[in-house]
Design a protein around this nucleic acid. Structure first.
Lengths: 234, 234
DNA sequence: CCAAAAGTGTTACCGTTACACCCATGG
DNA sequence: CCATGGGTGTAACGGTAACACTTTTGG
C-alpha cells in the first residue's frame, strides 16, 4: 500500500521537538552512560543519547519511555525530566528543540538491543565519553550536575544499585558520584539511622563473617515518612 | 502593505511551542503572582501567565525575556527555566508544548503596562488565584514547589526584596514562602553568621533605636564563596 | 503605660567529624 | 601472618532549637 505524500501546513513556523534521554548506570565503581551509535545523518557514526522526534499523540514523558524501550530495550526505570534545550543551531537540520530526560538504571536491567536507526548500544564510563553528537555534551554536563545535586537529598542512589546491595556498595556509589571521599563509619551510621534499609543478612546462607551484610531500600516506608515531613539527606 | 499569505510545510506533524512565565513578587508579607488578562481566544477574559509562541530565531530564554518585557514591562530580573509541559489537551487549539519559566521580581521593579493581546496586568496574592487559563494552575503548583525548595539552599529570596532590606523583612519572606514559623533569633544568627550581608545602618540618618537595621546582599562575595565550596542553606 | 518590634544572650541537646579499634579471612 | 575489608565505638566539636531577656517607642 502506497500512502499519498502528505505534508503538514501551519500559519507560523514551528520548531521540531525531540526528546533525548541521558541514561546513567553504575558498575565496577564507575558511573556509566548508555549511548547509541547513530545509523543516520546527521552525525552518522557518532555516539548520542537515545531520543527522537515527539509524536502528535504522545506526551514528552511517553516519548521518553518509548525511546528507552525502542532504542535501548529498557522499561520500568527511574525517569525524570531534566531541562529543555533550545539553542538555535543545536541541530544542523534546522530549528530543533529538545526536551531532555535523565534515567537511572539498575545493573540487572541492562538489556541492550540496538533499535531502529541505531547501529549499536553500549555503556561507556563517564570519563571516556567525548565527541558526542549535537549538543549532547552540554546536556550531559547538566545531567551530571543534576545527579550530583539530587543524590544528596533524594534517595535516587538506590535506583543505580540492584534491589539487594551492601553498605560498602552504597558507600562507593556516593563517593563516585559526589567525587569526594566519605568517612565509612559516619556514612554507615547516617544511612542506618534513617532506618530505611531492610536487613537481608539472614538470607545469606554461606555468609562468612567477612562478607558484607545485604540490604534493600524500603521505598514504602520512605514514602510514608516523606508524608510526615521527613526528608532524606546525606 | 498587504503581505502574501504564507504557510509553513513540514513532512511530519509538529507541535506548537510556547513559553509561559510564572512571575513571583513579595509585598505586605504576601507572596504575589503577576497575571495577564487574556484579550483573545481561547480563554478570553481569563487570567493567565505572560507567555506566547516561540519564534524561529529565538531561544526559549530569549522568548521568556521578550514576553516579560512585552507583556509586563519587566527586564533585568531573576529568570530560570521551570519545566516543560506537554499534555495532549492542555490547549484547546491543538497540540501545544509549553516551556515554563519562573521569575522573581523586586518590588521597585514593578512597572505594569498591559501589552499586545492583553487586557490587563495585575498582581494577585497567591491565595486568591484560581481558575487560570490552560493548565496554568498545574504550572503554578510546580513553580511554588520549586520556589519553596530552592529558597532553602540558594540565595534567591533576595531577588524578591528591594536591594536594601531589613532582617525582619527577610525573616517574614522565609516564613511566608516556607509556610512555617521560624525562630527570629536563630534565623538572624544563621543569616548573619554567613557574613553575606552588608550593613547600611550608618546610612540611616534618622535611625531611631527601634528601627530595624538595613542590609543588602553581597552577591559578589557569595559568588566567590561558592567557588570555594561554600553553599548557602537556611 | 503597655503591647509590639528589634535585637541579644543562654543553655541543653544532638548530629557530625575524625578518628581508633576489633574481627575474620584469604593469600 | 598480615594486609584487606567489614563493622563498631568514642570523644570533641559545632551548630541548632527553644527559650528568656532587654530596650525603645507608638498608640
Amino acid at each position: 500500500m502506497v500512502s499519498t505524500p502528505k505534508t503538514y501546513n501551519y500559519e507560523y513556523a514551528r520548531p521540531a521537538v525531540t526528546v533525548d534521554c541521558v541514561i546513567f548506570g553504575f558498575e565496577k565503581n564507575q558511573l556509566k552512560l548508555l549511548l547509541t551509535k547513530r545509523a543516520i545523518e546527521p552525525y552518522l557514526g557518532k555516539w548520542a543519547f537515545p531520543g527522537g522526534f515527539i509524536q502528535e499523540d504522545e506526551t514528552a514523558d511517553e516519548c521518553a519511555l518509548r525511546k528507552l524501550s525502542e532504542e535501548a530495550g529498557l522499561s520500568n526505570i527511574f525517569l525524570e525530566q531534566l531541562y529543555t534545550f533550545s539553542d538555535l543551531n543545536r541541530d544542523p537540520r534546522g530549528r530543533v528543540i529538545s526536551i531532555a530526560y535523565y534515567a537511572l538504571v539498575k545493573p540487572n536491567e541492562y538489556i541492550l538491543e540496538a533499535g531502529l536507526d541505531i547501529d549499536a548500544v553500549q555503556w561507556f564510563s563517564l570519563e571516556e565519553v567525548a565527541d558526542l553528537a549535537f549538543d549532547h555534551q552540554q546536556i550531559l554536563s547538566v545531567a551530571v550536575e543534576r545527579l550530583k545535586g539530587k543524590i544528596r537529598y533524594q534517595p535516587i542512589g538506590f535506583e543505580l544499585l540492584p534491589a539487594q546491595f551492601t553498605l560498602p556498595d552504597l558507600h562507593k556509589l556516593y563517593e563516585t558520584i559526589l567525587q569526594r571521599s566519605i568517612d565509612r563509619g559516619n556514612f554507615r551510621k547516617k544511612i542506618l539511622s534513617m532506618d530505611l534499609l531492610i536487613d537481608h543478612s539472614d538470607m545469606q546462607k554461606d555468609r562468612h563473617a567477612r562478607a558484607a551484610k545485604i540490604y534493600s531500600f524500603d521505598k514504602e516506608k520512605y514514602e510514608e515518612l516523606k508524608e510526615t515531613g521527613f526528608y532524606f539527606e546525606i
